[in-house]
Each structure stands twice: as C-alpha cells, then as structure tokens.
C-alpha cells in the first residue's frame, strides 16, 4: 500500500516505556519510522509496525508526537535563510508552531533538537534549531558560555581566538 495514504495507526514507545499512538501517515515524517518499516523509495509498505525510540524520554517523545500529528494537518512553512528577522516569531509566522515551543525550558528544547536529529525529522530539527539560534542571536561567546555554563577559555586560547578573529573585533 502507499504509505502516504495509510490509514493505520502505530505506537512510538519512549525510553521510559510510554507509548504514543498516531497515524502512520503522520509518523513517517520521521525517517527512522520509515526505515524501521522498510518503506521503499516509492513509499510502499506492507503493514506498519510500532517502533521503540529508546533514545528519547517520555515527555520529549510526547512533544515529538504532538508535532508529527499537527504537521500532517498543517505543514511547517520552510524557514528561509538568511533569516528575515532576529526573533523566532518573526521567522515562523504560523501560530501553532509559535505556541508549540512557547514556555518550554532549555533542557526540553535541547532534548527536542536531539530527538529531531536522531529520528531524522527535518522540519522539527529546523524549528528547534531556529529557536536556539534566536536565543543566541547577538550574544557574544562569553555571554553564551555563561548561559550554557561552559568553562572560560585559557588566556592562551583567548589570545589565539582574538588573533584568528580580528575581523570580528573590528566593530
């Protein structure tokens, strides 16, 4: 059968053992789901099967499934680079996608980036990475090290960095 028109549902199971049900036609946006079901290049499959995603924890997989379900109804408009605006909302005009990441904390945001990358969900990876990019926009390396709790460079490393990046410090 053609996977895009498949009416059957499957369950994705998290590392914690929680399962989340969704239509296969929505789940197949994740390439790991396609690969696990041996979907061929023509999009043909036999009978869709459930998939365990042991790398992703339950709260995160729940968000991922929420994304997959909605994307199947309303696809995310392609995010164009260079960005039109310095804010997330300025680049993502669709209200549902703006709200999808509203209020989530940084660990969850990073978990979603990791999950999107691991499950090969390109639109979710674009959306979450854009969110992080907008948080970093205009911030210096020092500010970002503080935000991310990364150790400072040694004086020698700092000197090398400044020599390599004189162009950056022009402004």
């Amino acid at each position: 059968m053609n996977a895009d028109e498949c009416m059957e549902t499957i369950k994705l199971t998290s590392r914690g053992g929680d399962s989340f049900e969704l239509p296969y036609a929505a789940a197949r946006l994740a390439h790991v789901v396609r690969d696990a079901n041996d979907e061929n290049d023509d999009g043909d499959i036999d009978s869709p099967e459930d998939v365990e995603i042991l790398k992703v924890n339950s709260p995160c997989l729940e968000k991922v499934v929420e994304f997959l379900k909605h994307y199947h109804e309303e696809a995310l408009t392609e995010i164009k680079t260079p960005l039109e605006d310095n804010t997330f909302e300025g680049n993502v005009k669709q209200e549902w996608y703006q709200n999808f990441l509203k209020g989530i904390d940084q660990p969850m945001l990073f978990d979603l980036v990791t999950a999107a990358n691991f499950m090969a969900i390109q639109p979710l990876l674009d959306l979450t990475c854009l969110k992080v990019s907008c948080q970093l926009m205009g911030k210096s390396a020092e500010e970002i090290r503080q935000i991310l709790n990364i150790p400072k460079l040694t004086p020698e490393e700092e000197e090398t960095a400044r020599r390599d990046h004189r162009w950056i410090f022009d402004d």
Binding site: V113, T114, N117, C129, L136, M137, R145, L148, H165, I168
Partner: peptide
C-alpha cells in the same frame, strides 16, 4: 540543564546565523 548537543546538532543551530556570528560563536568551546 547543561547542553549535551552534538557538534552535528550545534551545526544545525549555527546554520541560521550569519558568517560573522558563527565565527564568533566557534570560540565558545
């Protein structure tokens, strides 16, 4: 709370930024 993103994932994040800022941010770690 600490970031445990891989270089590939950070590359996706940096991929939305202009060249000057990427060169600046590569000094983070």
């Amino acid at each position: 709370a600490r970031p445990f993103l891989s270089a590939d994932e950070f590359a996706c994040i940096l991929g939305f930024l202009p060249p000057k800022q990427i060169m600046c941010l590569r000094r983070v770690c």
